[in-house]
Structure formats: structure tokens, C-alpha cells
């Protein structure tokens, strides 16, 4: 598929073109960037699920897709699994739990390898979300790799972050640790048919009662307190309550003005990252081509003076990178 053919088919609603475009952003190919520009009003709403391996994220996502389809919403899922740090290979197995949505044309499921990126998502997740929004999906659901305590990127990408816990994950000290529990907009205690689920709920409540209300915009009615939703995803129990909580959180973000603030902050952060990426490319080029610069760099034995020189050069004008339009 040529770039033009791909763009034509993407705009005509061809699933294969969407899938190919996602593959291209996965390998950091800038040629489909214009497809990310959504027509007005077609940005998808994003909810992210994160939690330890085996907590039931895929099953929850599957249950939520069912609910959203009953509401006639189109849904795209990006499910992330890790790649091997040694071979780059991966087993992407999240679709197994989502089989009942196969052949539903309003459901799109894409498995992504994290490809060595450590935040719990793929580097290309944000681009993929924009592509899905531009393609016309109403709702995007993210599923992170099974995370430990510090893969927090989902909170910087999703509008609403759901942290999934299950009974028997550890004692009360786990609950007061920094990291994953701080990013939750909503807690789900899944497998709530298992013994010990009430203890998890109680410990979460205890933990939350000690938290200072999260920073919020001046004049907003009150701070958001993450609700705790018990679910049995495999039996579709608690899913309506979960979705009600997601919608309540979205209303809260709108009413408090945080939705706009967050969108602005995220776009700025991402812009800074894109700038860094462009600059890195230019720096590599300069270091590769310029023997004099390399000689000075080796003489110094530290990178700082060479770096300053490169930045000064950049200030005089970036060379347009290849394949940019």
C-alpha cells in the first residue's frame, strides 16, 4: 500500500488501512501523521486499565466492550503485552478473552507489543489513539501490560485510569506504597467472588481516607475521590457500576475544568517529546558527519561542549528531517 493509497483507504473506512497505519506508527514512521488529524468533534474518549498480571484486565475490558456495544457505541481496544528484551519476540494473548466480539464490525481490537518501552504501554499508543479517533471510534479502551508498581504511563495517556486489584495481592503495607495506587481515578476489585475481597476494599478505603484530595482547579465544587468498584468480570457483574463511575469521572473533569487543562498539558508534554526526538535525530546526524566535532568530543571526554555546539547549530535552523511533510 502506497502512502496515498493508504490514506484513501483509511478515510474510506477500510479496517486494513487502519491496522497498517497503526503498524507504521509502531515503527515510528512519520508518514501517516496527517491521518491522526481528526475531523472536528471526532476525538475518542479514552479509558485505561492497569494492574498486575492475572488480575483480569482483559476480561474486564471484554465485559466493558459488551456493555458499550449494548449502548451502540463503537469501541476500539489497544491491548499491550511485553516483548522479550532478548529476542524482541512476544506472545500477544489478550484477544483470547475478547473472542465474543469477533466479527462485530464496531469493535476493533489491536494487540501491541510494548517493544522495550517500560511505561506499561507502547511508545506508539498516543498516535494509535488519535488514529482510532480519526477513524471514527467513539470509545478507546487501553489495557497495559501486567504492571508492577511503577509503570504509570497510562495515567498520562488515558482520560480515566482504572487500577485493577484482586484479593490476596499482599498486605496493608502494599496499600500505602507510592506509585500505581496514586494514579487511580477508579479502583476495581475484580474477582470479588473470591474470599478476601472485602479486606481489599477495606484496606483501599483506609488508604484513601488518608490521602489528601488531589490537586484540582480553583472554584471546582470538590475534589475527585476514587470510587472502589467490586466486579466479577467473568460474570459481567459490576460492569454497569464501573461504567457509571467512568462517566462520573468524565463529568467531573469537564465540570472542574481539568479536562481542558489536562489536554493542554499532555499536548505540550508530547510536543516537547517530539522536539526531543527531532533534535536527537539531528544530533546523531551531526555527530555522524562531522569529524571535527567528533575529534573535539573525544578530546573533551565529556559530552557537554559538543552538545552545546549542536544545540547552537540547531538554533540556526533545523534541517527538515527525511519523510516529513
Amino acid at each position: 500500500m502506497s502512502d496515498i493509497e493508504l490514506a484513501r483507504r483509511f478515510r474510506a473506512g477500510d479496517i486494513r488501512a487502519l491496522a497498517r497505519a497503526i503498524s507504521l506508527v509502531e515503527r515510528r514512521d512519520p508518514s501517516v501523521r496527517e491521518l491522526e488529524e481528526a475531523p472536528k468533534g471526532s476525538t475518542a474518549e479514552v479509558v485505561g486499565f492497569t494492574g498486575a498480571p492475572g488480575t483480569g484486565k482483559s476480561t474486564l475490558v471484554d465485559a466493558l466492550v459488551s456493555l458499550l456495544r449494548k449502548q451502540k457505541k463503537s469501541v476500539a481496544v489497544i491491548a499491550t503485552d511485553p516483548n522479550s528484551p532478548f529476542t524482541g519476540g512476544a506472545i500477544l494473548g489478550d484477544r483470547i478473552r475478547m473472542q465474543r466480539h469477533a466479527l462485530d464490525p464496531k469493535v476493533f481490537i489491536r494487540s501491541m507489543g510494548a517493544r522495550g518501552h517500560l511505561g506499561g504501554l507502547s511508545l506508539a499508543t498516543r498516535e494509535a489513539i488519535r488514529l482510532l479517533g480519526a477513524f471514527g471510534f467513539d470509545q478507546v479502551i487501553l489495557e497495559t501490560v501486567g504492571v508492577g508498581q511503577s509503570e504509570l504511563e497510562v495515567a498520562a495517556v488515558a482520560g480515566t485510569t482504572v487500577v485493577v486489584l484482586t484479593p490476596n495481592l499482599g498486605d496493608g503495607v502494599q496499600m500505602i506504597k507510592a506509585g500505581i495506587l496514586e494514579i487511580a481515578d477508579i479502583f476495581v476489585v475484580n474477582k470479588a467472588d473470591l474470599e478476601g475481597h472485602q479486606r481489599v476494599v477495606m484496606e483501599l478505603r483506609g488508604m484513601l481516607s488518608l490521602s489528601a484530595p488531589r490537586a484540582h482547579a480553583a472554584g471546582s465544587p470538590k475534589a475527585w475521590k476514587p470510587p472502589i468498584i467490586p466486579t466479577v468480570a467473568a460474570r459481567q457483574e459490576g460492569i454497569e457500576e464501573l461504567w457509571a463511575a467512568v462517566e462520573a469521572h468524565r463529568r467531573y473533569l469537564e465540570a472542574s475544568g481539568q479536562a481542558r487543562e489536562l489536554a493542554e498539558k499532555r499536548l505540550k508534554d508530547e510536543t516537547a517529546e517530539v522536539v526531543a526526538e527531532l533534535a536527537r535525530e539531528q544530533a546523531r546526524q551531526a555527530l555522524g558527519e562531522d569529524a571535527g566535532l567528533t575529534a573535539r568530543l573525544m578530546e573533551d571526554g565529556t559530552p557537554y561542549r559538543a552538545a552545546e555546539e549542536i544545540v547552537t547549530r540547531l538554533g540556526r535552523g533545523l534541517k527538515p528531517p527525511a519523510r516529513e511533510h
Partner: peptide, 22 residues
Amino acid sequence: EVIYTGLRQTPEMVVDAALQED
């Protein structure tokens, strides 16, 4: 990168998944 889709698939399901997964 291996995408495993599980048991009891129809040919339509397999192809549909392969297209979505590129």
C-alpha cells in the same frame, strides 16, 4: 510477535483478527 487468539475459531474470525492485527 505472535498473536494467539485461542480455541474454536471460524475462518471468518481468524481472517478478521489477522486484518485488525496487521
